[in-house]
Write a protein that binds this DNA or RNA. Structure first.
Lengths: 340, 340
DNA sequence: GTTAGCACTCTTATTTATCGAGTGCTAAAA
DNA sequence: TTTTAGCACTCGATAAATAAGAGTGCTAAC
């Protein structure tokens, strides 16, 4: 069965009506908002065809039709008219995001907040990562006779710290040795190279000081690892409660959002914008949700992303341009902050 | 009406039964688990008295009785038999918490996790604060021509950082000036003294460099402020969904937990252990919840707290000793980590 | 190809009936 | 004076019956 122009019009109308109301849409109601003048029976026939083609489905025999994943996909790829953010909206977004200017984490937090508020969805964002970031600075600060804070700063501007315990007392010599090893072995090195292999050879080379020093370098390697795996920020997760169609899945969905790892993976794509509808998601917790992820560039290279998560009936026509706008805005502002 | 010994027995049995089952408890059911041999009619009379005295109430005319806030309070203060954690439980808690040994944040996270898991409640914890903490170290790290990270480390081992933008290019002189001012004005100073007043006089004294340098010191003051207001960690909030009696309040309860400020205030008390039942809470979002907060000491002085939040029908006899055990454990481990 | 008409399906809401746990009261027993 | 058996009554919870309504698919005529 081929896709006629009329079928397209009807499909678009069904999708848009369902997105707006959340109710399965029947042939009669469709008549009102469709400019083609045919009877409801004709619409019914067409809708039956669209159902057979896999674009629509019925919750139950005597209900209206609801778009399937395929239906949404077709709508987004072929039928949708992008609705660019209004001048007023753009201004207001810019103002909110600019409030976080200066500090990347704060900036992304603000961006997440404004997205969550504007879209009524949960917003996620990842901090800018420099894949090829290097160690810029490593510090050791004793805070007790056997405890010290280890601090790592990367060339991408990420700062990580962790306290660390040694079995032996920390002396000024310990500190000196730490800095010596750091400046010869760590400073300027790409984070990725600081792995267990490197550590082993390093510790071996420490000789009699191995026992004393190794905890600090292990911690430093931990930090390097942390700095590589991008942090995920989450905002407005309670917005999800307002979407009834998520039903009891909200709970496991929130549980899923709380652990950042899968989200980080989800957001590590490279396409400008990535839209996953319901079953298109690889994680089963997202099976009833849609995800729109828009990546931002910092200084010309792919760096992080902003995303929203909500029910499948998102207002794609509006939200896709929104996300693109916000992410490019964030990219620009971050580029200002983190110069090369 | 005076409180007889039999009334006490009955009240305790009602509270315990309700805590166990969550169902309003009737006179007949009470007979089984009460060792006094009287008829259900007698129990009924006594329960009516207890209701009149304000310790029990009925959800509706023909239902069993449920403890009131007053009832719980009386039970906890006068009737409850503490149930100390078993040897096995203590071991398992120690093991979990010890996994975070070394880093205070990680340690409290682990403690929160184990508490949440063991109690089925949401767990909150505050990081150790040193009220009289001083500035131990302040660093400036340029990350762009006009941007720098400012890093603050306190004597209590807290580390805070924030990026900061200046209107003028950052030169080696900028950095040098920063360190000069820091070592003369900030290092060793109590965090509390770094307020707007101090900043104003400082900026005034900078003379021609005021424009160049002030953003950095403003940021530094921000960080000092941050370091003073204790961070709140939250674990297991999704446990709250399992308690049906919280009903739709779960959502606003979670919303409430997410913003840390009120929680921080809630946990800033000084008593060893603090139990607030339902309406005893000053925040209306907690009106249907109970809170058990147990403070821990680091090196002999009050420093932070661990708490659980759940429905009013908590197993107080078990959880109060649990929280005391965990918080004292955490205090000891932190004392090891953060020595004076 | 399109449409009016109609019987049919299935959900949702509303009403009605039934059940049972638990109470309070009374009057007798201890 | 306290305790107890007995009983009528209340009221929520559950289930069954009923009604309303939206929407469909099919048929036959246009």
């Amino acid at each position: 069965m081929e896709m006629t122009e009329r079928k397209q019009k009807i499909l678009a109308a069904v999708v848009e009506s369902y997105i707006r109301t959340g109710e399965p849409v029947g042939s009669k109601n469709l008549l009102n908002e469709l400019d083609i003048s045919v009877s409801s029976a004709t619409i019914r026939n067409e809708m039956a065809d669209l159902a057979e083609m896999g674009y629509l489905e019925q919750p139950h025999t005597s209900a209206g039709r609801v778009p399937t994943t395929l239906g949404y996909r077709y709508y987004i790829d072929k039928l949708m008219n992008r609705l660019e953010p209004s001048e007023a909206d753009r201004k207001s977004i810019e103002k909110s995001v600019a409030a976080g200017r200066g500090d990347p984490e704060q900036l992304l937090e603000k961006a997440g907040e404004v997205i969550a508020k504007l879209t009524g969805c949960a917003a996620v964002s990842t901090m800018p990562t420099g894949d090829k970031a290097t160690v810029r600075r490593a510090e050791i600060v004793p805070v007790g006779s056997r405890t010290a804070m280890i601090v790592l700063l990367t060339s991408a501007g990420t700062l990580k710290s962790k306290a660390c315990r040694s079995d032996m007392p920390i002396t000024p010599h310990t500190v000196e040795r730490f800095y010596n090893v750091c400046s010869s072995q760590f400073i300027g090195k790409p984070l990725e190279e600081i792995g267990t292999v490197m550590l082993q050879t390093l510790v071996a080379s420490l000789g009699e000081h191995a026992l004393e020093m190794s905890p600090f370098f292990v911690t430093l390697a931990d930090l390097a690892n942390d700095a590589l795996s991008s942090d995920v920020l989450l905002e407005g997760q309670s917005n999800l409660f307002n979407h009834r169609e998520l039903g009891n899945n909200v709970i496991e969905l929130m549980e899923f959002l709380r652990k950042g790892d899968p989200i980080a993976k989800l957001m590590s794509g490279v396409k400008d914008i990535d839209i996953k509808i319901g079953s298109e998601n690889e994680y089963k917790q997202l099976a009833n949700s849609s995800v729109i992820i828009s990546h931002y560039d910092v200084n010309g290279s792919r760096s992080g992303a902003l995303g929203i998560i909500g029910p499948t009936r998102l207002n794609y026509a509006k939200l896709i341009p929104y996300m693109q706008f916000v992410s490019s805005l964030v990219g620009n502002m971050l580029s200002e902050t983190i110069e090369d």
